[in-house]
Amino acid sequence: MTNPTSSRERILSRLRGSPAPFPDAPNAPQPYLSVTNLPDTSPEALLTRFQHEWEALKGEITITPTPEAAIQTVIGLIGEAKQVMSWEPLPLPGLPEALHAQGVAVARPTVRGEDRSGPYAALDPISVGITGADGALATTGTLILNTQGGQGRLPSLLPPRHLVLLRRDRLFTHLEGWLAAEGRALLEASRSVALVSGPSKTGDIEMQIIYGVHGPKIVHVIVF
């Protein structure tokens, strides 16, 4: 690549040569107003609001009382599928064993490097992806999916059905709250953080909403 540093220098020097265009711009507010608000931030209120927002986005959700119940929910949701792809590790101990006992094969996809079309084509028929979530934002119905170690992007990207394991103590009030509490550190440590608010959708044809365009059509959150 020939990127003459001169382009960089010329752009920067043109910008530096002009006075600041908005000398009267106000300073950053202290504190910032958040876009959404939730007066009651008790764990119950956070979960109630998340469920409300998530269902409004046409996401699916099952709130389970115990990790064991969560495992049973996942097994039930997988239904007839004989193969899934998943994070490694999953945040729900005992789930891989339970899947094995059901005769469900678990792929833990790793696709890097030059030739990807072969491995992708092999993964494409798998209809269910299982991941955890780093957390969720209550007021917007948003899941936080971080990529690190064996916890990659493909299981939440390729299959038409995505099952998400969410610990109930990982709910944040809103985007602003999460950014301040954990987002900053996460963005500095991780290369890819996806905030997912409901199933994939489009309104391109006459603004009629259709679900499952490129990403999953069904996103089912299992809270435990």
Binding site: R112, T147, G152, R191, S192, S197
Partner: peptide, 17 residues
């Protein structure tokens, strides 16, 4: 639906990207 925050190419440990 998707807000993708990207802070670089996949790291050596990442399984995809």
């Amino acid at each position: 639906v998707y807000t993708h925050l990207m802070s670089g190419p996949a790291s050596p440990q990442d399984p995809d990207g």
